[in-house]
Simulated assay, not measured.
Amino acid sequence: MNINFEGKRILVTGAGQGIGRELALRLSKYKGEVFALSKTEKNLDSLVTADPKIQPVCVDLRDWDATRKAIQNILPIDLLVNNAGVACLTPFLDATPEGFDLTFDVNVKAVLNVSQVVAKSMIERKSGGSIVNISSQAGQAALKDHAVYCASKGALDMLLKTMALELGPHNIRVNAVSPTVVMTEMGKLGWSDPQKAQEMISKIPLGRFAEVDEVVDPIIYLLSDRSSMINGACLLVDGGFVAC
């Protein structure tokens, strides 16, 4: 599939490492003008070293006002990927208000904030656009020790549906990619124990975790005009886990 993002201004949050980093590099390779957002300056420095065309945006997404200002400074944005996420993994009975607030601030509230700024600009410009949220199989299936994380991704999926409903008339498509475990740094937090990992893999019909490129590819597709009639979809990239 020949996809070209030339002339498109693209914002990727959580672009300092993992899926976000690889996505930013791929989008730049496909000739998009990429803005990479992260709160960690050294990660952004590493990314820009790898591809000097990428423009870094250093801000903590938990800071509502600073985030809005940072996004407004790089408008207009044509395509948005809300990739930033955190995982505070504890048993349900051990979940804390601090972990809950951190998880929902980044995984849900920041998506609302960033998307509001970008979508309002798209509407003013009458340009249309595409927004892709990075969710998780955890938004559709309960996982042990993931109570708060699962709740945040379930909330994100419903936010996606209402965004698609309200922004669709402005020709702004909103979709999600929902992967199974990917062994990024965040993935290792929950699944680095071989026994626990094998228990999860045994429930995935394809018998393995996802590779980063297998998540990046569908994001690229949903951003592109090749998916022009897809809106409000949560695309599972889970090897069949939720089907079982």
Rank of each mutant, 00 (worst) to 15 (best):
R62A: 09
I77P: 07
L159M: 14
K29S: 12
K8A: 11
V177F: 04
F92Y: 13
P218N: 06
A84L: 01
I172K: 00
E211Y: 05
S135V: 06
S192W: 03
M186C: 07
C88R: 15
L189V: 13
L223Q: 10
E199F: 05
L47N: 04
G207K: 04
L159P: 07
A141I: 14
G7Y: 01
S224H: 02
G32D: 13
N43S: 05
E6M: 03
N82E: 09
L93D: 14
D101F: 04
G239K: 05
W191P: 12
L236V: 04
W64A: 14
G18H: 02
Y221T: 14
F104R: 14
M183L: 15
Y221D: 09
A110W: 08
V111M: 03
A119V: 05
V12T: 11
F92K: 11
D157V: 03
A142F: 03
D105F: 01
T13W: 00
D45C: 02
M163E: 14
N4K: 03
L79A: 06
A210C: 15
R68F: 05
D101M: 09
V216T: 10
A141W: 05
C244Y: 04
G154Y: 02
A15P: 01
C150Q: 07
V132M: 08
V57M: 08
I219H: 04
A110F: 10
D94E: 15
K188Y: 08
G240T: 09
A151F: 01
I131R: 01
A70E: 05
N107C: 00
A138K: 00
T180Q: 08
V118G: 01
C88W: 13
P91K: 06
P97K: 08
V237L: 10
L235A: 06
L112H: 11
P76K: 00
T103W: 07
F241K: 10
A210M: 12
N43F: 01
K120H: 09
P179Y: 01
S228M: 08
M183D: 14
G20N: 02
T13R: 01
A176C: 13
A36V: 06
L167D: 04
P218V: 06
A147Y: 07
N82T: 07
G32R: 10
K196T: 14
G16C: 04
I77T: 04
L75E: 13
N83T: 02
C244T: 14
Q198C: 02
W64F: 15
V117C: 09
Q140I: 11
L79C: 04
T162D: 12
K120D: 13
T180N: 14
L189D: 12
N82Q: 07
S192D: 15
M183C: 13
S38V: 03
P218Q: 07
A15L: 01
I201W: 04
A138F: 00
R68V: 10
V57K: 01
E199R: 13
F241G: 05
E98F: 12
W64P: 06
S115Y: 00
D78H: 10
P76W: 00
P179T: 12
L11G: 12
Q116H: 11
S178W: 00
D65L: 06
A151Y: 03
M122C: 09
A176L: 07
L61A: 01
V34E: 10
A243C: 08
